[in-house]
Amino acid sequence: MNIIWLNSKGGHARSVQLSRSWLYLALLVMVALPVALGTGAYWLNYKLVPPAYTEAVAERFQSELNEQKREVADLSRLSAEQFRALTLQLADTEARLVRLDALGERLVDVAGIDGQEFDFSSAPAIGGPEVEGSSSFTPPSFMQELERVTTALQRREQQLDILEKLLANRQLKDETFLSGRPIPHGWMSSRYGRRTDPFSGRVAWHKGVDFAARDGSPIIATASGVVTFAGKKTGYGQLVEVNHGNGISSRYAHAKSVTVEVGDIVRTGDTVAIVGTSGRSTGPHVHYEVLKNGQQVDPSPYIARARR
């Protein structure tokens, strides 16, 4: 094989004749050199840069995997405990709901309210147009049961709240029901209407009823209300006036002393004053008046009422 070199400057040419052995050697060098270079580069990279996956890396991965397994197991155990707690709470709530129903039905029966108006055994009637864009959702069975109990409790609370208001109104009417006498012991010494004035001897209009009682004995409220006057008033002496609502008020006059103040809330039978003979009086007694819309009326019908 001949190899010819050309010299571009001088225009000379040289030729070299190679034998077959040299040709094979050259081809061998051309093939072996890249292989040697690649092998050397791989060896240097392995020695200088450690591999990404080693036994240490495998151990670390295994440790992290074991830790994650423990966390999953702990989470599963915690979820199971919480689920059991929710189940127990749901059972307790249902038991309370049953007792609440029984209480509501008992209150309806005691209050004498129509049972059909407060039926604790049936769901309330509800409805309304469908909201556009609303999507259907089916919760898990446990959540459905929890939602059912929660809704039932809310319904019972609403029913009992209304029932409580009705009973409170009825109780308020009972407490403000004016009836009875303003003294525990004594007798009626002067009626409402025309009579002979004990001081002038002339016929005069008596705007209340007098009850003779022992000096120092209690004067009691004939109904619940708010004290609107407590003190001295011309002609009445020591006077207590109680507003019972609905335009009804009562007065207790000629007391030795008063035991309440303006703004106090008194209940039926509470002591509001002490029997005396203050003001225009001939002896220890209580001058009792009933006012309707600011005008004195005959107290006799209220005195004759039976206590509720």
Rank of each mutant, 00 (worst) to 15 (best):
A80T: 14
N2I: 13
N243D: 12
N66V: 11
R14S: 15
V108Y: 00
V286A: 09
K292N: 06
S15Y: 06
T268N: 14
G231N: 03
R20N: 04
Q238Y: 03
Q295H: 09
P124F: 03
A85W: 09
T222F: 02
N45R: 10
L23A: 09
A111P: 09
R191L: 14
D174V: 08
A273K: 06
R202Q: 15
L178P: 03
S79V: 10
R156N: 00
F142I: 12
Q68N: 15
W43H: 13
S250A: 08
H206Q: 08
A26R: 11
G225W: 01
L88T: 07
F120V: 00
I162K: 08
F83N: 06
E64I: 12
Q17T: 01
V260W: 07
T228C: 02
R305N: 10
E147Y: 08
A253R: 09
G115C: 03
W43K: 13
E164I: 01
K69Y: 12
E105V: 01
T54Q: 02
T222P: 00
V275H: 04
L6M: 13
E117F: 04
I4P: 00
L33C: 11
W5L: 15
R77E: 07
V131L: 12
V242I: 13
R191C: 08
R96I: 08
P301G: 10
P139V: 09
S190F: 04
N293D: 10
G38I: 13
F199M: 10
E81C: 09
V29W: 14
A26S: 15
W5R: 14
V49H: 12
T39S: 15
S281I: 07
G180D: 02
T277H: 14
Y288A: 06
F120I: 00
V286Q: 09
I126V: 13
A85S: 11
V149W: 04
Q89Y: 12
A36I: 05
S224M: 11
P184Y: 01
Q295F: 11
T87H: 14
F142P: 00
W205E: 05
A58K: 06
Q17I: 01
G283M: 08
V226T: 08
R305V: 09
L44T: 04
G133F: 10
I183V: 15
Q171N: 15
W22Q: 13
V131W: 07
R84S: 11
L88C: 10
G216W: 05
P299V: 07
P51H: 05
R155M: 00
Q116R: 06
E105H: 03
R84K: 10
A230Y: 02
E132A: 10
G180S: 02
A304T: 03
P299C: 06
W187A: 11
I4W: 13
T93G: 05
S21D: 05
S121H: 02
P301T: 09
T39A: 15
V149P: 00
I274S: 07
L103R: 01
A212M: 06
G279N: 11
M188T: 03
R181A: 05
L100V: 01
L166E: 07
L86M: 13
V260D: 04
